[in-house]
């Protein structure tokens, strides 16, 4: 096999794993859209907020320290302790549940029955509010996520495959962090599917997703289900925030990862969990292969362009995406 062919395979493998990272972000969108019909513009910011909160708790940072110090003339920054990762993750999940409750209690409860565009606009406002809140609580500096996640290429894979395509082939590069993300994504999706299929609340969630009014008529509390769904989306956001934050440090540009999820959603469908995964994989492989094969001829940096053009094509020929529910309007 030629080195070029093997490098092509390497690009495909890395594209698959990049796709998993995109899918992690897209999953949060799908959960909320499926259950409530809300396209949650704030999902990227939720990932940022969750990751900021995790690092803040782990490092024993005093939340709102800047405001406290400015108001009372104190010099508080840290409590002086560090919290173990597992406990900090648990606490962060608790914060995201609290956030889910607050979103329902103070925002969407007042918007029941409004048009989807109004709900979408509300999530735009929520995104800005949450970004500002994260800044006030934890500051805007870049934070290092010290969870001990592995970084760098797998030496074992590299050594085992080096030379397969002659001296010009240096072995497959597979990022260990991407491998961890893949395993986490598999567990997460399996967990979400098991939850929705085999638990009482999961079935209630699906019932709400199918028909709000029918679910209400059989005694399912919409308010509880929506808090549950936003909590799950918050948890998914935390996982996405951890994986992306491990690459770049936890910083405010994490909120922009939502941009990578949009074409995935258009492709996979806004209402399908498997669709988010398959969409992520197609976008990941497609954009990486396009950059590898066509990029050098057109100056490179084609990935975002390719992802959105592919999504556009799907919108034209299959508006509901690969796995989305077909829209049938009876007149």
């Amino acid at each position: 096999m030629s080195a070029d062919f093997l490098y092509g395979i390497e690009v495909v493998l890395n594209g698959l794993m990049a796709g998993v990272m995109y899918a992690l972000v897209a999953l949060g969108f799908v959960l909320i859209f499926k259950a409530s019909g809300i396209f949650n513009f704030a999902q990227g910011v939720m990932a940022l907020f969750a990751a900021l909160t995790l690092v803040g708790i782990m490092e024993g940072q005093v939340p709102f320290a800047h405001i406290i110090n400015a108001t009372f003339g104190t010099e508080l920054h840290h409590f002086g302790w560090e919290v173990p990762a597992i406990l900090a993750i648990t606490c962060t999940v608790g914060v995201m549940i609290l956030f889910a409750w607050a979103v329902q209690r103070f925002l969407f409860r007042h918007l029941v029955g409004q048009e989807p565009i109004i709900l979408f606009m509300a999530t735009i406002g929520l995104a800005y509010f949450l970004e500002g809140m994260g800044d006030l609580m934890w500051g805007s500096d870049i934070k290092t996520l010290a969870l001990g996640l592995p970084q760098g290429g797998s030496r074992w894979i590299e050594d085992a495959t080096a030379g397969l395509g002659g001296d010009d082939f240096y072995g497959f590069f597979i990022d260990k962090l991407d491998m961890v993300a893949t395993v986490v994504a598999i567990v997460l999706v399996a967990g979400l599917i098991a939850f929705s299929q085999y638990t009482k609340h999961g079935r209630a969630m699906r019932a709400v997703a199918d028909d709000h009014q029918a679910a209400l008529s059989v005694g399912i509390s919409l308010n509880f289900i929506w808090i549950l769904v936003w909590s799950l989306a918050g948890f998914v956001a935390l996982v996405a925030g951890i994986m992306w934050g491990a690459k770049s440090g936890v910083q405010f540009s994490l909120s922009l990862i939502a941009l990578k999820a949009l074409p995935v959603l258009m492709l996979g469908g806004f209402t399908s969990i498997p669709g988010a995964i398959v969409g992520g994989l197609i976008i990941g492989v497609g954009e990486k292969l396009f950059e590898y094969l066509v990029g050098p001829m057109v100056g490179g940096a084609t990935e975002n362009w390719f992802a959105y053009v592919l999504a556009l094509l799907f919108l034209v020929f299959r508006p509901q995406g690969l796995f989305g529910e077909k829209i049938i309007e009876r007149v």
Partner: peptide, 21 residues
């Protein structure tokens, strides 16, 4: 050689695989 990175630069796998090659 020139290797462009799309804004904001959160994902650069393609670029660094190219450098590795």
């Amino acid at each position: 050689t020139q290797i462009a990175v799309d804004h904001p630069g959160q994902e650069q796998k393609s670029q660094w695989l190219q450098i590795r090659r």
